[in-house]
Amino acid sequence: MWAEEIVAGRPARRHVPSGVVFREVPGGIFRMGLSDAELAAVRAIERAGGAEDGLEPFFANAKESQPVREVRVEPFLIARHPLTVTQVRHWLPEYADGYADGDSTTARVDDDLDDLLEALPFRLPSEAEWEYAARAGTTTLTFRGDAKPGADQLLDDFGDEQRTAAAENAFGLVAMGSANEICADVWIPGFAGAPADARPRTGAGPRAVRGGASDVYPWQGCDEWLLLLAATRYEQAGFTAIRPVAPLPPRG
């Protein structure tokens, strides 16, 4: 079922039946949430004239990604990029995507979400796992630093391997923040009382979502770049992308 490969010069594991490429994310401890340093970096972008609109709503909602806390993450496998239309059709052969531009682009799953989650032999990442994977060892707004991210950081079509490889973070993952990716956690504003071991928060209601900057592209000057920030989170509504997670296969 699994094949070990080298993809873009890095070790990877491919789920052979579906073709989904997974990267191994090492375990570790990181500070999860929107830090004071990141808020200051956004303020600096605003002062430099890099914000099209007033960012007070962003700062007012910062509490939804706070308090910052240390979280321990165990090693896991996560898909190199969100599932594509072709990959979703491995589990749902009749799947039709009204949002995608082609078979190699990110699948935006809507009415088929429950069916897909039931069919997948994998699970959704917890919010902690997702943010840890997106940060890839960094503490900045995105893995590229504290500069304002631009449209060049978006990636939605994975048919061009050269472009895909060039967009990888330190964990070999791409498009973290591009599509709105659903997590295993139920949506709860803020991290007060959240687990310190990367478990998802459970309960009734919509799930938490990360990313989504490419879903509103071309940008209309409403500071959609904020969706690329590693700590940006919000409540699920409508279609969503899926980046599955799997446990490490046994060694040897």
Rank of each mutant, 00 (worst) to 15 (best):
E74R: 14
P82L: 05
G98T: 10
R80N: 02
G50E: 05
P57D: 08
E70W: 03
E38V: 02
L77P: 01
D111I: 06
E129Y: 04
V88Q: 13
E64D: 15
P125R: 06
D97P: 05
L92C: 08
R72L: 10
R69F: 07
L39C: 11
I45R: 01
D53M: 13
V88A: 13
G54T: 08
L117P: 03
A60M: 11
G98I: 10
I45A: 12
A133S: 15
T84G: 10
V71Y: 06
G102A: 11
P75S: 04
A62P: 08
P93A: 13
L120T: 03
P93F: 09
E64P: 00
E52C: 13
R80G: 00
L39Q: 09
G98Q: 13
Q66M: 10
P57M: 10
A41T: 01
L117W: 02
I45M: 14
Q87R: 11
R43Q: 12
L113F: 10
Y132V: 08
D115Q: 14
V68S: 03
A100N: 07
E38P: 00
A51Q: 01
R69N: 01
P67D: 04
V71K: 04
H90K: 10
A40D: 14
P67I: 10
E74G: 04
H90G: 12
G49R: 08
E127I: 05
E129H: 07
L120Q: 01
E74Q: 14
P93C: 14
P75I: 08
A100M: 09
V73I: 12
